[in-house]
Design a protein around this nucleic acid. Structure first.
Lengths: 402, 402
DNA sequence: CGAGGTTAGTTCGCGCCTAAAAATAAGCCT
DNA sequence: AGGCTTATTTTTAGGCGCGAACTAACCTCG
C-alpha cells in the first residue's frame, strides 16, 4: 500500500536509486544497457548517469566494441567513492572489517572481549573502527556508515536499543553509546542473524531469490526472513524469533524458561546437552565447535541417535517456516548448521519434506550457506550500502566528499 | 527496495491514490484537511480532487462552518461510482454479496452446493452474481470487480489457480472457469482466510494496525499475516499455512498426513475429535457448531480438560506467530475461535504469554474478531476496492462509466 | 448594512522531471 | 574519404507539484 505523497523531486531520487542499484548489483553496464534494464529512456539514463559521474559516484570502466558502431562506454559504481565498515559483536569478541564501495575487504581487526558489558563493547568498537581505518589509510570522513551486528533484538527508534537476554543486555542504548565512544559516521545497528541473512542474500546462496529464509544454527538457532527482497522486521523489529517457537508442546525446558522451544532441540548447545544426558556426563564442553564435530563424526549408537533426532527436529522447524512463509529458497547457515548440513543435508531435506505441505514444499530449494565466518560483519557492512542505494545517494541527504 | 523507474505520470497516479485512500478510510474530509493529512500542498489537493470530482469518483458531502471564515466543503468517495461483489466459496454452499463503493451491502444471495466440483461452483458463482445484480437493479457494467474467497491456496499467475486438498481441488484454473461461466467484471481470487483477514483489518479489530496477525479458528485453523498493511503472500501466494506447522513433534496424526500439526489439536474438528476419543464415542457430530457449543458449556471433567488443553495449544500456536512476526495486534476470529474466545480469551492470552518471549509479547494486544459471519464475502469484495485505491483509479487503466 | 476579518479554495508562474526526436560522436567497412 | 551502424548527448515538448497571489464565502462589529 502506498502511503505518502510524492513530489517531482522524488522522481529523480527514485530513478537515481534504480540506476545505482542496477549498476551495483549487475556490474559494469553501458548507458544503453542501463536504459534497457531499468526501463528509463536513453536520454534520462544519460542525464542521470552524467550527474552521478560528476558527483563521483560512478566511474567509467573501459569500453566494449559494438558491431560496427560507436563502442559502448561501461560504467560502474566508483569503489573509491566511500567506504563502509561492518562490526560483528559476538559473545567472546568483536570483529571489525573495512570495505570499499565495491565491497572489497581492505582491512580486518579481531578484538577479544573479556566481559560483555555494553560500555566495554562500545569502547572496543570505537577502537576497532580506528584500527581498520589506520591500517588501510582511510579517512574517517570517507566512511559512509558503520553497520553493527549484535546478538538479540534491536529496537529501532530515533536511536537503536538492544535487548539480548542471553548476554544480559536489557534495553541497552547501544547506538548512543557507540556514538559517545567516538564513532562519527552514521550507525546501523541490527540483529546479527539479520545481517548475516543480508550477506547471504547479496553474496551467498540467497542471490536472486525474492522470498527466502536464511536459517542460522549456531549455539542457538535464529532466522532471517526475506520477503520481496526485504528483511522482515515486524512492528518493533523483533520478528524472527524462530528459536523460541514451540515445536514439542510440553517438552524440554529451554534456557528462555519455556518448554518445547525449537532451540531446546536443534542448536549445537541443545544437541550436545542431549548427548551428555544420554551418556550421563555432566560438564559442558570447553569448545562447542570441536565437541560438535566429535559428536557428528562419532559412530556410537547414542551419538547417531542424537544426531538423527536433531535432524528431524530441525527439518520440522524448517517445514514450519516453509508452510508459513512459502519461500523460494531456504539457506542453512551458521557454524553448526554448516557442520550438520555438510554431513546430513539430505536428511534435513527429507525431514522438511515429511513435515511440510506438498505444495509449498514443491516450490522451495534448500541449500547450504555460502558465506564465510565473517558473514555477520559483511552483512553489517551492507547496511550503509543499502541505505545509499535506496536513497539514490541523494546529494541533499548524503555528504559528497570533495 | 524500490524496483522500477518512475515517470511524471506516476506522480499523479500515486497522489491520486493517496487522496482517494485517505477519503475512503477516514470518511468525508475537506480539501484543506486532505492537504494536511496527506502532506500534499493545498494547490495540488485542490487540482486532484477537482479531477476526481469530474470523473465522478468523488462527490461533495455537505459543508461544515468554520469559525468566522468560508465553510469547508466536505468530499467523499462517490458510493455510486461503481459496485463490487464478494463471493464466499464454502464447502456446503456459496454466498454472494453486492456492495456499493462505500461498502454498503445492497443485496445477498446464499446458494447451497451439492457437490464441491469446480464446474458446478463456477456456474453457481455466475448465477449468484446475476442474482445479486438483478435483485438490486445494478448494471453489470458498473461492477468494478468480483472478489472470490476460496478454501485452500491460490496461485496467482496470469490467471488464478486453486489448490485445496481438503475438497480435492488440485490445480483448478478457477479464474478461467468463472470467466467461462459468464462473469464479465475483473476477477480477484484469493484464499478465504486472507479475505477474512482483510475484512478484519478494514472494518474489524485490526483497524489501524500496520502489523497484525488474524487467527481464524473454524473446523480447521488458518491465519492471515499483515505486514505494513499488506497481507503476506510468499513466493507463490501459499504463505500462512499455520494450521500445518508442527507444534507437538511426533504427536497426533493430522488429516494432512503429518504428525503433530497444530490443526490436529486446535480446530473445532480436533477438539471434538479429542473429546470423542476421551469419551470413547465414535460417530462425528452432524452439526459441528452446536457440538462445540455443547463441549464448551459442559461441566464434565473430561470436557473441561479437553477445552483447557485446546486453550493451551492455541496459545502456544499464537505465541509462535508472535515470536516470528512481532505483530502489534492479534485478532482471534472464525466461528470456533469466537465461541472459544468468548468464554476463554483470558486463558488463551495467558497461554500465549507463557509461550512467547517477553519482549515481543509486551508489544502485542490480543482481541476477539469483530466481523460477522459474512466476513469472507466482505473481505473478498474489498479486493477490487483495494485495487482501485492502489492505482488511484487511473483513468488510463480503469473504465469510467458514462 | 457595509467594512473589515477570517478561513477555504483556486489560479498562475516557476522550476524540475522524463520522453521523444533530432543531432552528434565514434567506431567499422569498402 | 565516404557511407553505415551504433552509442550518447542535445533539444524540445508536455506533465507535475509547489508557493504566492488571488478569489470566494462566511462572520462580526460598528
Amino acid at each position: 500500500m502506498v502511503r505518502t505523497r510524492a513530489t517531482v523531486r522524488d522522481l529523480r531520487r527514485q530513478n537515481r536509486s534504480v540506476l545505482l542499484t542496477a549498476l551495483f548489483l549487475d556490474g559494469p553496464l553501458s548507458r544503453l544497457q542501463l536504459s534497457a534494464s531499468t526501463g528509463l529512456s536513453a536520454a534520462t539514463a544519460s542525464t542521470i548517469t552524467g550527474e552521478l559521474l560528476d558527483e563521483g559516484l560512478l566511474v567509467e570502466a573501459g569500453s566494449v566494441e559494438s558491431d560496427g558502431g560507436r563502442p559502448r562506454v561501461l560504467l560502474r559504481v566508483n569503489p573509491a567513492f566511500g567506504h563502509v565498515i561492518g562490526v560483528d559483536v559476538g559473545e567472546t569478541g568483536i570483529k571489525v572489517e573495512l570495505f570499499d564501495l565495491a565491497m572489497t575487504r581492505l582491512s580486518t581487526v579481531d578484538l577479544p572481549l573479556v566481559e560483555v558489558e555494553p560500555g566495554a563493547v562500545s569502547d572496543l568498537i570505537a577502537s576497532g573502527v580506528g584500527s581498520v581505518l589506520a591500517e588501510a589509510g582511510v579517512e574517517t570522513s570517507s566512511v559512509l556508515g558503520v553497520g553493527v551486528g549484535v546478538p538479540g533484538t534491536v529496537e529501532r527508534g530515533t536511536s537503536a536499543v538492544v535487548h539480548a537476554q542471553t548476554i544480559g543486555w536489557d534495553a541497552v542504548p547501544l547506538e548512543k553509546m557507540i556514538r559517545a565512544a567516538g564513532v562519527e559516521p552514521r550507525l546501523f545497528v541490527e540483529n546479527g542473524a539479520k545481517t548475516q541473512g543480508q550477506a547471504e542474500m547479496w553474496f551467498g546462496a540467497g542471490r536472486g531469490a525474492g522470498h527466502a529464509v536464511i536459517v542460522l544454527v549456531g549455539s542457538g538457532v535464529g532466522v532471517a526472513v526475506v520477503t520481496d527482497g526485504v528483511v522482515h522486521r515486524g512492528a518493533t523489529s523483533n520478528a524472527g524469533e524462530w528459536g523460541h517457537t514451540t515445536i514439542v508442546y510440553g517438552g524440554r525446558r529451554c534456557r528462555c524458561g519455556v518448554r518445547g522451544c525449537l532451540e531446546a532441540y536443534a542448536g549445537a548447545e541443545a544437541m550436545l546437552g542431549r548427548y551428555r544426558e544420554a551418556l550421563r556426563h555432566n560438564d559442558p564442553p570447553v569448545d562447542q565447535q570441536s565437541a560438535l564435530e566429535e559428536l557428528l563424526s562419532s559412530r556410537s549408537a547414542v551419538a547417531r541417535r542424537v544426531v538423527e533426532e536433531s535432524v528431524g527436529y530441525l527439518g520440522a522447524g524448517i517445514a514450519n517456516l516453509v508452510n508459513l512463509f512459502n519461500p523460494e529458497r531456504v539457506v542453512l547457515g551458521g557454524w553448526a548448521g554448516l557442520a550438520l548440513g555438510a554431513r546430513r543435508l539430505d536428511g534435513i531435506i527429507a525431514a522438511t519434506a515429511e513435515h511440510a505441505l506438498r505444495h509449498p514444499y514443491g516450490q522451495v530449494r534448500i541449500e547450504l550457506g555460502r558465506t564465510g565466518p565473517d558473514a555477520v560483519a559483511v552483512g553489517a557492512a551492507t547496511l550503509p550500502v543499502a541505505a545509499l542505494l535506496e536513497t539514490g545517494a541523494d546529494p541533499r541527504s548524503v555528504r559528497i566528499p570533495g
